[in-house]
Nucleic acid binder design. Structure first.
Lengths: 236, 236
DNA sequence: GAATCATATTCATCGGATCAATTGGAGGCC
DNA sequence: GGCCTCCAATTGATCCGATGAATATGATTC
């Protein structure tokens, strides 16, 4: 194992063992490098790797800190993976999203507060009015779509579940999905499905919510029967 | 945005757009640094970040290459997140694993080949004989447990699903779970649950497999009702 | 033709230097 | 006293150059 990997693991272990806690500040680069027995440049590469994993964060002129280590933060690497695979037309991420989003929507049915049910209604109204207008801007629909699902999933009661779903369906993924919907009928169907999910939530009915959520994502999956690059192999 | 972040994004975009393809070799550090308009050290920090994300890999004396970008590779950052949260006693990762593993086990029921069903039987036999012996070594049981679940989910037909599950239940997580099982009866129950899953697979019955898999993970969840550090907040 | 060895290529690691952002205190002003 | 401005110290960001270590490649030898 190289010196850099060693430094990365050492810092990781300091976090797992609790020696470094969320929000805590690390020693200055010079000291930490000396403490780990590596050059400053080497330490910086290790720190940079941990920054990429959202474990550390740096502020010039201030210092280096451990992040909150919240699931939402640590799991955002999923987003990039989803981006390149969905961009390549692989439906496997969407299948996983279907499984999870069905469950999360069901859980949200009994947890989402009334305020946010009203907020969902407002989002749907905006989308419907936008589609009814003259010129449809996909960016606007993507943003409304993201807000709609995001608000529901955030009330599922499980931060990890919410984070995985959200990262699997980030801006890039949704943009590709909506761009693929050239058929106006497909857009209408999507809005109807959103309404059905909303009604199930209003009725506080988890099973209805689960079914409508699953059906909704399945519809997206089936509309993406393109190429399958990266989509087949299980191995690395 | 800093120079390093800029270099990272540039390389990422080159991959998303297909300018850099899986397995392809990058220019040598000196040339690539010049091409991106940064110093070599700065480029190295960017490359190091992408290595941490499993997007690039380097071989001293040879060069820098784009990885296969397979889901199994890109999603392994989940492992560290699961490690520190499960180590802190949070059950949220296990809940997600329960949802996914139930689905994956059901899917595997109709896909797993006969050879591997026999291999599963062999793994179970080893575990049972080991437990029946004088001295129980947890490391051995952890390895057998990992092999058992790993072999099943690898046949679910979805590489992303398999990768997420496996990374959510890596060596560190399983080690903590088995270490928590001080009660010999708990070990026995776990082995019985494994047998039940195996029988369901033998019968090629997805619904039975799903239920037994869910029950199995649920049992693990319920045995971990400790502290809830990191487990509550959805925000970052 | 295969094995061995020398050499070139390339990443890994190091040490130091300079730039830029933030912080915190000194001093002055209302 | 409280607030503001400004300066200096701290700290990460970026760059430069040099050396070490691992690999690949081609020449050499048998």
């Amino acid at each position: 194992m190289g010196v850099i990997e060693g430094a990365i693991d050492t810092i990781k272990q300091m976090i797992i063992t609790g020696e470094l806690r969320p929000g805590q500040r690390l020693p200055v680069e010079k000291d930490l490098a000396e403490q780990l027995g590596v050059a400053r440049n080497t330490l910086r590469e290790a720190v940079r790797a941990l920054i990429a994993m959202r474990v550390l964060t740096t502020r010039q002129g201030d210092g280096t800190y451990v992040t909150s280590l919240s699931p939402g933060l640590l799991l955002d690497g999923i987003g990039f993976a989803a981006d390149i695979h969905v961009a390549a037309g692989a439906g496997q991420f969407l299948h996983v999203r279907r499984i999870l989003e069905a469950e999360a929507t069901a859980a949200a049915a009994t947890r989402i507060p009334g305020d946010d049910l009203a907020r969902l209604d407002e989002l749907l109204g905006q989308a419907e009015r936008h589609v009814a207008g003259n010129e449809i801007e996909h960016g606007k629909l993507v943003a409304l779509d993201e807000d709609f699902h995001s608000l529901i999933v955030s009330h599922c009661g499980n931060a990890v579940l919410a984070a995985v779903i959200q990262n699997m369906s980030g801006r890039t993924v949704r943009a590709r999905i909506w761009r693929g919907m050239t058929d106006p009928e497909a857009v209408q169907r999507t809005l109807r499905e959103h309404r059905a999910i909303h009604r199930a939530l209003l009725a506080r009915d988890p099973e209805r919510a689960r079914l409508h959520a699953a059906l909704h994502v399945l519809g997206v999956e089936e509309s993406l029967t393109g190429s399958r690059a990266f989509g087949g192999a299980v191995d690395d």
